[in-house]
């Protein structure tokens, strides 16, 4: 990993703090995501993983700390610039978060509506994205007609339709059976290789982490508790770290 540490990170988080009343969720979290790497962030429920990524995509405002995406501090951007920057980030939500009232096609077209330059080729982009996840036939179905795994794939297709530099996966395998989980993980790998994206994967699925991770971060007590490859961490003698790999 030494060769890429010199490269400028696409996502840089420094000293991120966020608290809800007396509940201090993030206590100075630091993290770097480098180009074309798969970084797995592991942590217990309520450890602040979701809060951290929500801060990254602007769904929450951090109390203190800086977040730099592609070298730009998001707190210094106006709404329009931030929205443009957001197009560089794909987000796969935990529950897929497909819009119930829209067809698959409309779901995939939704991120494009902000960009008039894509209007002419939206048809092509949608069909390409669906091909990438292997669900071209589902284009005119409604989300309620899809299975959980299919929904996840459509959501993935939606996340990559703008060809983002960074894809954030929030618990990509939660609620799926092991076989479907493996399919999704393979798909994620494939996309990463195809588009050379940087992926930030939040999970507590150890299998998933083992298969996909180039590097791992353990988020414990609101800080970057330990960082390293899957093998490094799984071999750690630290009790708190050991708990994850039991």
């Amino acid at each position: 990993m030494n060769k890429i540490t010199n490269i400028k990170p696409v996502l840089k988080i420094q000293n991120l703090k966020k608290s809800f009343g007396n509940n201090h969720v993030l206590n100075g979290f630091n993290m770097n995501l480098f180009e074309a790497e798969n970084l797995v962030l592991m942590g217990k429920s309520g450890s602040g993983k979701s809060v951290m990524i929500k801060c990254v995509v602007g769904l929450m405002q951090p109390d203190t700390g800086t977040i730099e995406i592609m070298g730009k501090d998001i707190s210094k951007l106006n709404q329009k610039e931030f929205n443009n920057l957001r197009s560089e980030i794909g987000f796969l939500f935990q529950g897929s978060a497909l819009y119930d009232s829209m067809t698959v096609r409309e779901n995939l077209e939704f991120p494009l509506r902000k960009f008039p330059e894509y209007a002419s080729k939206s048809e092509k982009l949608v069909s390409e994205a669906l091909e990438n996840v292997g669900l071209s036939s589902a284009i005119d179905l409604m989300p309620e007609e899809l299975s959980g795994g299919m929904k996840r794939r459509i959501a993935l297709a939606r996340a990559i339709i703008l060809r983002p530099k960074i894809i954030i996966y929030d618990e990509p395998t939660t609620g799926l059976d092991p076989i479907t989980s493996k399919e999704i993980i393979q798909l994620m790998k494939g996309i990463q290789q195809q588009f050379k994206t940087s992926s930030l994967i939040i999970t507590h699925d150890v299998d998933c982490a083992r298969v996909i991770s180039n590097r791992m971060i353990l988020l414990i007590d609101g800080i970057n508790y330990m960082e390293g490859t899957f093998n490094d961490l799984s071999a750690s003698k630290d009790k708190k770290v050991q708990e994850f790999f039991k």
């Binding site: 929500k54 769904l59 987000f91 497909l98 119930d100 939704f110 991120p111």
Partner: peptide, 20 residues
Amino acid sequence: AELGSMRVTEQIDAMEVSGT
């Protein structure tokens, strides 16, 4: 109910993330 379920299933967040 519609907005509530959209909120709960993170569809509103998804919308925000996609710049709308």
